[in-house]
Simulated scan of single mutants.
Amino acid sequence: MEIKNLSKTFFSDKGMDTVIDEVSFDVKDGEFLVILGPGRCGKTVLLNLIAGLLEKTTGKVLLKGQELDGPNKDLSMVFQKLALMSFKTVMENVELGLKFSGVEKRERRKLAQHYIDLVGLNGFENSYPKQLSGGMKQRVGIARAYAVKPEILIMDEPFGQLDAQTRYSMQNEILRIWQEEKRTVIFVTNNIEEACYLADRIILLSEYPATVKEIYEIDMKRPRDRVDEEFLSLRTEISDNTDLGI
């Protein structure tokens, strides 16, 4: 995927408000790419532009050389605020995208079960969202996104509302799933440590309006140690280059 000179300006009676300003970067096949930026810098707007959920003002989003214009079946998104159907079970929620795509019931049940098992929710197929913890709900969202077999999985601060212990656990889980599925991931966060722990590359955004401030290539082996000297050095380098808190 290529993001070329992408910009978004909102127009209102009060004038123009540019949120994304000439952002360009590529997304490599199979990589875990993290977009890191301060709160309210425009990260979610950028993701919505990439996913085709928001109309761009200028620029292009290319997938395999073809310009994307609107939502695409090869892209799937996991939101921070999960849109799980409260009246549907785990199985029914995971099946939802497959059902909308016209997949036959037996096949979609088989696919949904595979991804429920993959995210560690075997035995909870008939549970409802209100019966699940925050981390378990995120697993449902991840299973649902993976079930439609996208080429690129886009994740918008999916662990931002979890407690620290659950967040660490989910970071390990998403890496495990990514390594098993071998799909490209675009992951957004405002947490430097999380970015350093997960990423193959980090796209560091500036404050609002968002521009690309720096791109970091990460070659540390996994699993990564958060108190390792190399890890701490990278975290400090990024911290010194932004107003983000560690």
Results as ranks from 00 to 15, higher is better:
87 F>R: 05
205 L>T: 00
119 V>W: 10
223 P>T: 07
246 I>N: 14
122 N>A: 04
20 I>H: 09
41 C>V: 03
100 F>W: 04
178 W>V: 03
59 G>S: 10
14 K>E: 15
20 I>P: 03
75 L>G: 08
185 V>M: 14
56 K>Y: 06
112 A>C: 10
137 K>R: 14
114 H>M: 08
144 R>K: 09
141 G>S: 05
176 R>E: 07
192 I>L: 02
115 Y>E: 08
182 K>V: 07
57 T>G: 12
200 D>K: 01
205 L>E: 05
97 G>C: 09
235 R>E: 15
133 S>D: 05
160 G>K: 06
220 M>N: 06
31 E>G: 06
109 R>E: 06
71 P>K: 14
23 V>N: 06
16 M>I: 07
186 I>P: 08
118 L>A: 10
167 R>K: 03
107 E>A: 12
29 D>P: 14
17 D>R: 03
233 S>D: 11
218 I>G: 08
169 S>E: 12
219 D>T: 13
169 S>Q: 10
53 L>T: 07
233 S>A: 12
246 I>A: 07
88 K>H: 05
132 L>T: 02
208 Y>P: 01
103 V>M: 08
229 E>L: 14
143 A>F: 10
21 D>I: 02
28 K>W: 04
69 D>Y: 12
236 T>A: 14
39 G>Y: 03
243 D>I: 06
139 R>K: 10
93 N>Y: 14
171 Q>R: 00
56 K>I: 05
166 T>M: 02
21 D>L: 11
42 G>D: 09
179 Q>L: 06
73 K>C: 11
180 E>P: 00
30 G>S: 09
116 I>Y: 02
146 Y>H: 12
14 K>N: 07
4 K>W: 10
73 K>W: 13
4 K>E: 12
215 I>F: 11
113 Q>E: 12
156 D>I: 00
236 T>I: 11
47 L>H: 11
121 L>T: 01
5 N>T: 10
48 N>T: 11
245 G>V: 13
11 F>D: 09
157 E>H: 01
125 E>N: 04
150 P>S: 04
98 L>I: 00
161 Q>C: 07
109 R>Y: 03
4 K>L: 11
236 T>V: 05
191 N>C: 02
7 S>H: 15
13 D>T: 14
117 D>Y: 09
99 K>E: 15
92 E>K: 03
17 D>F: 10
91 M>G: 00
201 R>C: 06
177 I>D: 11
227 V>Q: 09
111 L>I: 15
75 L>E: 03
133 S>M: 03
2 E>Q: 13
13 D>R: 15
155 M>Y: 04
157 E>F: 04
65 G>K: 13
231 F>C: 09
68 L>N: 14
116 I>A: 09
23 V>H: 10
69 D>L: 12
169 S>W: 05
174 I>P: 08
198 L>G: 13
122 N>Q: 13
25 F>C: 00
170 M>D: 10
29 D>Y: 06
182 K>L: 08
115 Y>A: 03
37 G>L: 11
231 F>N: 08
153 L>A: 07
118 L>T: 14
231 F>E: 05
